[in-house]
Nucleic acid binder design. Sequence first.
DNA 1: CGGGGCTCCTGTGCGC
DNA 2: TGCGCACAGGAGCCCC
Length: 272
Amino acid sequence: MPELPEVETIKSDLEKVILNKKITDIVIHRASVIKEPGLKKFKSLLINSWCKKIIRRGKLLAIEIITHQKEIYFLAVHMRMTGQLVYGKEDPKSRVSFKLSNGFYLCYNDQRTLGELRLVKDIRGLSVIKNMGPEPLGEDFKADDFIRDISVRAARIKPLLLDQKFIAGIGNIYAVEALFSSKINPAKKACDLNAREAKVLFKNIKGTLRKAIKCRGSSFSNYRDGYGNKGTFSENFYVYGRKGLPCLVCENSIQRIKLGGRGTYFCSKCQK
DNA sequence: CGGGGCTCCTGTGCGC
DNA sequence: TGCGCACAGGAGCCCC
């Protein structure tokens, strides 16, 4: 589910409603989504702790909390395919519900239960963080570095964009949309892109992610923001989910192929 | 390193 | 209608 723009939207939504609120109770309906520590410790540390800050890195969202013993912890949430973090009334479908001091809830919903919650002291020690590539909207993400890194990789460009070690936060939707905007065939080898193509792709990754954040994310299926509402970027898809429909630029039929096991949409006329 | 296949789960939609 | 298969914003693992 949530890629960088969706997680960023949830982060900014929740910042408005959960900061400086105390967690007064936790109801766990599906223990398996909690990966560490054990359930007892998870509950005892979080109950009566305060939400101080929210961080996003790639697709990972973390709530910095301070316990009643004045210790700092991070509740790291990876929503994978169908995870949601929704503030409001208690959702009967939630996997874990956090009751807040104002009587409202922060609900972790996750239809497929592939997501993961971890409560840790050292957020940087999480392997997912340690191995994560550059933040595509970060200031230290430079075109020249991207062009250089791409030039030495033999992998096909689309699966490479999904590799969180190569670049953080891009998922299936934004990979195919950025490649369409750049007129690059998703199966092309990264090292076969010339510098001009790599630079265009660099700009379109940023542009696509920024537009999606403005639209509060993509809800073609079950993504919801921090308040349970849909995002509108799905109305702007050029290729994602448009198999057999006419290309919005040249009217050629959009193709769907599999790359690295993932559905991949593109226009064979526009993308070379 | 790169690629394919499988796995974790639940739900929906399609063809026969 | 019922059944089986494909597929879904992710990612880790094993094997070649």
